[in-house]
Amino acid sequence: MVFVTGATGILGRIIVLELLKKGKKVRAAKRPASDIAEVKHSYKFYTENPDDFFTKIEWINVDFEDIHSLQSALNGVTEVYHCAAKVSFHPKDEKEMYRTNIKGTENLLFACDQSNVQKFLHVSSIAVLDGVNENGELDEESDFNPKIDHSAYAISKHLSEMEVWRASAEGLNTIIINPGMIIGTGNWKQSSGELFSTFEKSSFTFSGSSAYVDVRDVAKIAIDLMGKNKFGERFILISESKKYSEIGNQIRRKLNLKDAKILSKSILNTGRWLNIFFGWLIPQLKMATRTNIESVTSSSIISNQKVKKVLNFDFIPVQESIDFHLNNYINDKKLNKL
């Protein structure tokens, strides 16, 4: 039995689907209020037999603050894919991120220690990587630098990684993957699922860039790494780095909208000062933090060579990925699903 946390998220649902395609029995974690019908709906974009696969999922409500709930969920489980996480860059979500991402991971690993779990894959983020190699690239040897300003999200993911490495040192077979921004279908109003609606609604973008990867690639790689027992290692999963303006305008042109205007760093810094004085009055200004501004105005070169060599893997090009999932987004809008 395989246990997948965050199974209603943009990545977790596809890991579940890919595992089912391989004939695995899957237990999928959800919250009581989770919309699993939306997951079922999104499967039609990924397979010709969505109903057949969906009915094979064993859904279970899990409370990550309750050890007994987690121990019950792990009954009979030998492999875990830990995808559950809170993703946000808004200061108001800091406490929830620390509770969900750090404490939730700690509790899950404690429950694994009391179970028959043999393999554990943790989904982290490229946000935890600092420091470049001799080629000026971020790679798997890049270490988190606590002296640098980080978002609360990056800190929470770094500390959750520390819990995984600790479990690894104590004997659990673990793998960490660090994907870039995941491009996928469904879950349109949360986390990276908001990519298309954000660029649709906003006529502004930023001068920096980010690294992107298709959800189908992340799911396939995660399962392949577990199958090849690549334990005690981390793997960066990105296809390409692209300017926000390039991604935004590809989306906006497909939606028959004008190209987005780039907000300069100086304008954003003005917003940061306004946040200091008027953030209490204008909630949107709360996002204008030093770390957020640095993130959206900077660019990094990130290496994906390790996983490409280990698995002989070719990533889906970002433009192709955007086209595929954007068409799904548009079709969902036509069906009034958003």
Rank of each mutant, 00 (worst) to 15 (best):
G248T: 01
E294C: 02
I301N: 15
E240T: 01
I301K: 15
I223K: 03
L257F: 12
F278G: 02
F278A: 14
I293K: 08
K308H: 10
F235K: 04
S245R: 05
I238D: 06
K220P: 03
I236S: 12
I262K: 03
S245N: 12
Y244R: 06
G232A: 13
S303E: 14
L285M: 09
L281M: 12
I251N: 09
I223S: 08
T270C: 13
K261M: 07
I221T: 04
R216C: 09
G227Y: 03
N292Y: 09
K220W: 08
Q305K: 12
D217A: 00
S300D: 13
V296C: 12
E294Y: 06
A222N: 11
K258T: 08
F277R: 10
M226D: 05
N275P: 13
D259T: 07
L257S: 07
S298K: 12
F277D: 10
M287L: 14
I221E: 08
I238T: 02
E294T: 08
I238A: 06
K306T: 07
A222W: 08
Q305V: 10
I238F: 06
N229P: 00
K308L: 02
G248S: 06
N292D: 02
M287K: 07
V307A: 10
G271Q: 04
I293A: 03
K230E: 10
Q250S: 05
G232H: 07
W280N: 13
I221C: 04
L263I: 14
R290L: 09
Q284G: 05
L281N: 12
L281C: 10
N304G: 00
L285P: 11
P283L: 03
L257K: 15
K261T: 09
K243G: 08
R234V: 01
I276H: 14
L268H: 00
W280H: 05
S300Q: 15
D217R: 01
R290H: 12
